[in-house]
């Protein structure tokens, strides 16, 4: 349900399996008694936001989000059969070398590692879990949710669609922010969520109203602009990446708190490989670890801020009290 003037919002960035970190951080935010009126999410952040918007009250929604991640860990829906290295290699090869891509995809299909020629992973399990966890009817009445998607340019007969999308993303094509509460049918809601999480090659793009959409993280992994346009003034951004290059000063009207991972969140520091492996590792142990780190990092981030604000307010209050009592004293002196 869209609120007239959302005061407090959450921005949930994309990062694949690292989204469990956000579940832990949101757990602590909920324990502080904070409740967002609006959420903007990209990729896994959009899925997390959808689960949060599907339940009421917020504390219950947070519980369900944690359960959702436990179920993902137990189901091992995305655990690769041939190891992270194979996926990483395949991903890179398909992205940049079209001939090799065709050869690799054909090879995976023949070997039974891959069922379709459009993506590495079968989207069915994640669709199933999404439909179990997200309830469009409740979602429409609950926290306002915006998801980031990127309109993919599909040229028939041209096998360079991913490369074209990457070039478009780097050359200034904008992502779209779509509000799920504006979607009239349930299927569109599910499609939008899956489109937002449609990591190129890993999952297939989604067609909505004749337009193909893929993961919005290609262009805008931190969709705070969506909240800024809605007039939301106070925002917590939960990053899923170390050393994220993002400047809060781009949003001078907003008061922003960034929760950033305090330890290395990727499994490996090897460029590309480490990132991809962290995106795809949905193991129960890893999810549990990320949730715990998210909770601890949120605590370490928010507590000093809260303490500082309390301290400053107490100081100002004591100053006002001092002035007030002094003025009363002066008033008494003048009355004598």
């Amino acid at each position: 349900m869209k609120s007239n003037q959302p005061e407090f919002g959450l921005v949930l960035t994309g990062g694949g399996a690292k989204g469990a970190y956000q579940a832990g951080a949101i757990q602590y935010i909920s324990e502080l008694g904070l409740q967002p009126q609006i959420i903007a999410g990209t990729s896994i952040g959009a899925l997390n936001g959808a689960v949060l918007s599907s339940y009421y009250p917020f504390t219950h929604a947070v519980e369900r989000l944690n359960q959702f991640w436990e179920q993902l860990g137990e189901a091992e829906i995305l655990r690769p059969h041939t190891g992270a290295l194979l996926h990483t290699f395949s991903y890179a090869a398909q992205a940049f070398v079209p001939r090799l891509r065709h050869w690799l995809v054909d090879f995976f299909i023949k070997q039974g590692l891959k069922h379709t020629s459009t993506s590495i992973f079968d989207p069915e399990p994640i669709e199933y879990f999404l439909k179990q966890a997200v309830h469009p009817n409740t979602l429409r009445k609950n926290i306002e949710l915006w998801v980031t998607v990127f309109p993919s340019l599909k040229i028939p007969g041209l096998g360079y669609d991913l490369l074209i999308d990457l070039i478009r993303a780097k050359t200034g094509s904008n992502a779209c922010w779509l509000c799920l509460q504006d979607c009239l049918d349930d299927e569109t809601i599910y499609n939008l969520l899956l489109a937002s999480a449609a990591l190129p090659l890993a999952f297939p793009s989604r067609e909505i109203n004749g337009q193909n959409y893929i993961d919005g993280g290609l262009v805008d992994n931190i969709p705070l602009k969506a909240l800024a346009k809605r007039g939301c003034k106070n925002v917590i951004v939960i990053h899923l990446q170390n050393g994220s290059v993002w400047d809060r000063d781009d949003f001078p009207e907003q008061t922003i708190i960034e929760i950033r991972p305090q330890q290395t969140i990727n499994k490996s520091e090897v460029p590309v490989v480490g990132v991809v492996e962290s995106w795809l590792n949905f193991s129960s142990k890893r999810i549990q670890e990320l949730k715990q780190r998210g909770y601890e990092d949120a605590k370490c981030c928010l507590n000093p801020i809260i303490d500082s604000l309390i301290s400053v307010r107490e100081y100002r209050q004591s100053q006002i009290s001092l002035i007030d009592s002094t003025e009363k004293l002066l008033m008494m002196l003048r009355c004598e």
Binding site: N242, I256, E269, I305, L309
Partner: peptide
């Protein structure tokens, strides 16, 4: 303002994250 105070405290945490990231990066990174 509260915003300035939050930016001050949270900015320290952000800076720490960036410094930590730069320190931990390997040669290729």
């Amino acid at each position: 303002s509260d915003k300035a105070l939050i930016n001050l405290v949270n900015g320290i945490q952000v800076s720490k994250d960036i410094i930590r990231y730069r320190k931990n990066r390997g040669f290729f990174g």
